[in-house]
Amino acid sequence: MRGRPTFVIGCVLVAVVFVVALGSLIWLPYDPADTSGGRLVPPGGAHLLGTDKLGRDLLTQLMVGARIALTVGVGSVLLGGALGVAGGLLAGFATRWLDDLLSAALDILIAFPTLLLAMLVVAAREASLGSAVLAIGLAMSGIVARLTRVLVKRVLAQDYITAARTSGASWPRVVAEHVLPNIWPTLLVNLALQLGLAVLAEAALSYLGLGPPPPNASWGRLLQEAQATVLTAPTGAIAPGVLLVVLVVGVNLVADGFRDLADPTRRRSR
């Protein structure tokens, strides 16, 4: 940890958002749907950060937004990670033609940009929390699968795999004891980076009006709603953006830190 100030900063930034999100489950200044506060009240007094154009308390909305951002981010990483690692393992172990087929399918899935795929899922279903997680997780799974496949192929070419197989270890045991332990550090770094991208994707979806609907406050939607009143009530147009940057920078710094821990030979200046 020492001599890694950026990693520590990253942990602190992520921790702050996590604490706010968890805190929103226990306590909120106001009900998220409470519009009794008066419209566009400036910060201070009863409303620490003021209210939005519907009279909802901004601090409350931001706290709920932290929860939604993390739910979608973590949810889609879990979904995309599970699908991706399973698909990547399958392709990595598969015989030639199945591997070719899976790789081609992955290349095409990756050619579908995350946001377009997400918009497609939302168009096919409806704008909801589940759609956002499904859409972003699905888009992510292709990238994770391709990485997993490459990592698995690299490990399988090693002599210790041959040694394990000759000494009678079954394939499931080889996967559990040799393959996964060798590939997880790199996977973890990639999944952390994907978490940041997922948070940004959710924000973009919500900004476009295709994210989780109210009462799920989303930072992206808060920004969209505050756009019209940016001159009279600037806090609403700035605070959600700052929180988004804090979370994503934090996640990226943590990912960089993981990478340095996983590979001590890597130059820190990268």
Partner: peptide, 12 residues
């Protein structure tokens, strides 16, 4: 910092 900023927010 730039890779962490939502593009629509910069626009706003």
């Amino acid at each position: 910092l730039g890779i962490a900023v939502p593009v629509f927010w910069i626009g706003m």
